[in-house]
Amino acid sequence: METAAIEMGQAATILKLLGDKTRLTMMKILDQHDCCVCEFVEIFKVSQPSISQHLRKLRDIQLVKEERRGQWIFYSMNKDHEHYLFVQEILAQLPSQAHLLKALEEKGTRISCC
């Protein structure tokens, strides 16, 4: 499958956002699993406003999308984004982060807000 070339400015914006370890880890997780803010708070041990700020930056350029489920908002990778394949190529080079979700499951805090 041939991909359209990405403009330097768009690539720089995406790479700048992914240059943050927390956002990069979030994107790796979201590529395989939907998550809510509370799960990321538990994974990264940071405040809810901090997690929301990271997600807002990713949402602002539409790399992630949100879906309301009851009173909770779940985030997922926007696989329809015009540069998803560019992001996917980066994420494919990274180790799986499934162990972070497994740890939440073992502690009983996976999707505890739902």
Rank of each mutant, 00 (worst) to 15 (best):
M1D: 14
M1R: 11
E2A: 13
E2C: 13
T3A: 14
T3I: 08
A5W: 05
A5I: 04
I6Y: 02
I6F: 03
E7W: 05
E7T: 09
E7I: 05
G9P: 00
A11W: 04
I14A: 01
I14R: 01
K16L: 15
L18Q: 04
L18T: 05
D20S: 09
D20I: 09
R23N: 04
L24D: 10
T25I: 02
T25F: 01
M26N: 03
K28Y: 13
K28I: 03
I29N: 00
I29E: 01
D31R: 09
Q32A: 13
H33G: 03
H33M: 09
D34S: 05
C35T: 11
C35W: 01
C36K: 03
C38P: 06
C38M: 10
E39G: 14
E39Y: 07
V41T: 14
E42R: 08
E42S: 06
I43W: 01
I43Y: 00
S47R: 10
Q48H: 06
Q48D: 13
Q48R: 11
S50Q: 10
S50T: 15
I51R: 02
I51S: 01
R56Y: 12
R56L: 08
K57M: 04
R59A: 11
D60Q: 13
D60W: 04
Q62D: 04
V64A: 09
K65W: 02
K65R: 14
R68E: 08
R69L: 09
R69Q: 12
R69K: 11
R69S: 12
G70F: 14
Q71C: 09
Q71I: 14
W72H: 13
F74Q: 01
S76D: 02
M77D: 03
M77Q: 07
N78G: 09
K79D: 10
K79M: 13
D80Q: 08
H81N: 10
H81E: 05
Y84C: 02
L85D: 08
V87T: 01
Q88F: 10
Q88G: 13
I90F: 00
I90L: 07
I90P: 00
I90A: 03
L91N: 03
L91D: 00
L91F: 15
A92P: 01
Q93P: 08
Q93E: 13
Q93Y: 07
Q93K: 13
P95A: 00
P95W: 00
P95Q: 00
S96R: 04
S96P: 07
S96M: 11
Q97P: 08
Q97M: 10
A98H: 13
A98Q: 11
A98L: 15
H99T: 09
H99S: 03
H99E: 06
L100G: 15
L101D: 01
A103G: 10
A103S: 07
E106K: 04
E106V: 11
K107E: 05
K107I: 06
K107Y: 03
G108R: 06
T109A: 07
T109R: 00
T109D: 00
R110F: 07
C113F: 04
C113Q: 06
C113D: 02
